[in-house]
Design a protein around this nucleic acid. Structure first.
Lengths: 135, 135, 135, 135
DNA sequence: GTGGTCTAGACCACG
DNA sequence: GTGGTCTAGACCACG
């Protein structure tokens, strides 16, 4: 259910945060559900347990999950669907902002950006996957 | 003419590449024009010598400028408007790809992405500037 | 009569020690009274058997209760009101010491600490409950 | 200027966060000042550099310092004395809240707590140091 | 069994 | 030179 791409330049622990955050936000993981243990997920993903622990710690600080010493890690009860949706929306807005920030620094116009985005999103829709990122 | 924001999380050398690339692409820097020396620009921007050197090396490899040992650095003569436009287009495509890659990792749908992009680009068009990136 | 908050960051076994110690100190549990068995209390509180066992062991070591193999666990006969008060006093002193230790590590002055304590204790007196701890 | 107690049960990285936060809050470290490098401070404190890095990361997330890849770590320019004071005040309030929370769980009265606090703070004032925490 | 802290050390990105 | 990421593994606290 959770997978990471070790060759990506996005740190492994960030990928885990994104994946788990997504599963919670979309309701695949429901409030109260136990997450895989730190060591179990580390084994599954073939990464070090510290890497998973770091991701879980960030998710805990973000109020998405609740870590209980010696008992395990659980999706936070208090997180309503509304809140989950808000987290997701905030993440999307941040993503777009940082994208447009890069475009502005390179002096692209809104028209440039809109047209190229339209093309690639359309390709993504058809292919089921977006064009691969350059290495 | 070239400025960088040291507090930004975008690496300094990337900012320099973007700025110079932009100045060339928009014709502010014309073929044959001499760029400031690495040492001069490093002093002006108050950044490390190696940082500017790395940016110039990347621009050289991209065929935007030509570094001539002992003579200085020049905007490439041979760079036609067409080529400049191609470089610019490639940069834009890369930007969009990396944006969509992030969206996929967080499992947003093409619709999600399209609608949020549309909103923020529209805001950018009206304001002249896009929403600020988070710190 | 005994309850714990699993979401609190205070370890479960510490909460049990505190609760039982309190019930004894205030005379709700009197010398000779039998405590629930480890297994019974663990079931009631929905916590691990070992957690209750650890709490009972600490209470035993502190001379508050007496665990008699195969017979059950009892509030100590020999515990006079005076002794109970001494235990209570020792607990309070430990609490204050650890509080002031934290303040010193963060370099607060006695004046800082005294004034903030005064404010919150006053609020507690009026409200019947002190300000909630952060999650 | 920064010291830690490796025998304390308070994690080393938390102690570093507290110390540095304090130095900033009291103006000993001023906005723009560079902090010791991660590796340097680790050597000085005789702890692993990862432990220091973790503390710096937390301070960065808290908006106290600014970490600049390859350049070093600096006290954040934007942090006004007012903000620093607010951070400090919030820390003190949290400390007192968690102290009173413990007292309530053990069923002490406001009077109990006030009187014991008064005694130990007075001792601290006279001795220059508060009573040592139990091991 | 489950998570937390810490170390020693490799390798990398940025300057 | 400076910070970041990751690993392998020890040892601990809590359950």
């Amino acid at each position: 259910m959770i997978s990471v791409d070790l060759r990506s330049h996005v740190p492994t622990y960030v990928q885990i945060v994104e994946r788990v955050g997504h599963l919670v936000a979309t309701g695949v993981l429901k409030p109260g559900n136990q997450l895989p243990t730190v060591r179990q997920l580390a084994t599954d993903l073939r990464v070090n347990f510290n890497t998973v622990a770091r991701a879980y710690r960030l998710l805990d600080e973000a109020g998405v999950i609740s870590t209980q010493q010696g008992r395990g890690t659980y999706v936070l009860e208090g997180l309503s669907t509304v809140q989950a949706e808000e987290l997701r929306q905030a993440a999307l807005e941040g993503l777009v902002r940082s994208f447009l920030g890069g475009a502005v620094r390179m002096a692209f116009s809104p028209d440039d950006v809109e047209s190229e985005s339209r093309i690639q999103i359309e390709r993504w829709r058809r292919a089921g996957d977006p064009p691969a990122e350059a290495e």
